[in-house]
Amino acid sequence: MPVTQIEFPILQSFFCVVEGVTGMPPQPLDASPEQVERQQQRERQDEQSVGGSKPKMPKGVVLGPDGKPCRSCTSFASWAAMSKGETSNTTMSKPPATAIAAAEPPSDCPPDVDRLGNHTWTFLHTLTANYPTNPTPTQQSDTRSFISLFGKMYPCWSCADDFRSWKAENAPRVSSREEFGRWMCEAHNAVNVKLGKDEFDCGKWEERWRTGWKDGRCD
């Protein structure tokens, strides 16, 4: 069932606002070619209506539901490009690939989408690593509730929407530590695939996040 059809009217209103502001329905970080084309057409129409004076956002800047750039949804490189005014009325600037790869926010700055994601996955995997081997019914229920609330409150709204969509087809498995750990690994791999990253061997999730590697380098 699509997220906007869940019996939460406030969520339906939220997504309607997002679509009205951006011209695009809520979507994961990797928009489809058709969605990108529709957005570009909308931007061209907006430029024509204001005589081409409307500035464009750098590639990668994600708008929040209020129509303003969402810092928690945007990479540091794209945010810096926008902040420094590296835009044009006729072209959309794109930082060099080497600059993007090296660009990281200073440690005392608000996290960008990448740092937020990395720290979040560290927390979630560590959570599964400390989950009971044989959880009680109450612990299982609490864990399902936590995962549900996490999907609604995650600061990057587009990431949260993507997570909820995946979770709708892959219900949390919380009957044991092993099941929960593998489920979280699969959720992480789903994101890795979208971002073009390698998948992690979920058979090794416990070594990575709980016991340490067998070669002893974590001891």
Rank of each mutant, 00 (worst) to 15 (best):
G151L: 04
N170S: 13
K167M: 15
E179D: 12
A160L: 07
A160Q: 06
A168F: 10
G181Q: 01
F180P: 07
K167P: 02
M153F: 03
L149S: 15
W157A: 03
D161T: 05
E169F: 11
S165P: 04
M184H: 09
A160T: 04
T138N: 07
S176T: 01
P135L: 05
W157L: 11
T133H: 00
E179L: 11
C159E: 01
R182G: 04
S145E: 14
C156N: 07
D162I: 00
G151F: 01
M153K: 05
S158Q: 07
S175E: 09
W183A: 08
A168P: 02
R164K: 06
L149H: 15
F163E: 09
N134T: 11
C159K: 10
C156A: 08
W183R: 06
W183S: 09
M153L: 10
T138A: 08
Q140H: 04
S175N: 01
R164W: 08
W157H: 03
P172T: 11
S165F: 07
S158W: 04
V174F: 11
K167T: 15
F146E: 11
M184E: 13
G181M: 02
N170G: 10
V174Q: 13
W157E: 04
D161M: 05
M153Q: 08
A160Y: 03
S158M: 10
T138E: 09
F163L: 10
W166K: 08
P155E: 00
T136N: 00
K167Y: 07
M184K: 04
A160M: 03
R173E: 15
P132G: 02
N134M: 02
Q140V: 07
F146K: 10
T136Q: 01
M153D: 04
C156R: 05
C159R: 05
Y131S: 00
M184C: 09
A171Q: 15
G151K: 04
W157P: 06
F150S: 14
T133Y: 05
F150Y: 15
T138P: 01
D161F: 10
G181P: 01
D142G: 07
T143M: 15
I147D: 09
C159L: 09
D142E: 15
R164S: 11
Q139H: 12
V174C: 13
M184D: 06
R177C: 03
Y131I: 00
D162E: 09
F150D: 14
E179G: 07
S165V: 13
F163Y: 12
E178Q: 00
T133P: 00
S145V: 15
C156L: 08
G181C: 03
S148M: 13
S141G: 09
W183Y: 09
P135F: 05
K152R: 11
